[in-house]
């Protein structure tokens, strides 16, 4: 429990490290989603062009 309390600063320290982890995860997820969205958009456009033909 001492470890979690961090001499009374636990709330500040754990929230900082939690936010750090959150930002690492968000940047990766966002980069992946952006790629998939661009990929799908191109796929849709190619499909639409096929149908016109």
């Amino acid at each position: 429990m001492d470890i979690l309390a961090m001499g009374g600063y636990g709330y500040y320290i754990w929230s900082s490290f939690g936010l750090g982890l959150a930002v690492l995860v968000i940047t990766v997820v966002q980069a992946r989603r952006h790629h998939d969205a661009v990929y799908r958009e191109i796929e849709q456009r190619l499909k639409a062009m096929e149908e016109v033909k």
């Binding site: 001499g7 009374g8 600063y9 500040y12 320290i13 900082s16």
Partner: peptide
């Protein structure tokens, strides 16, 4: 940084936020 680095004599454990804040 959380468990093995010694406590800061002025800021006590609060200084450990440095391990996220400064790299960010």
């Amino acid at each position: 940084g959380l468990f093995f680095a010694p406590m800061d004599y002025q800021q006590k454990d609060a200084f450990r936020i440095i391990y996220i804040h400064v790299p960010a």
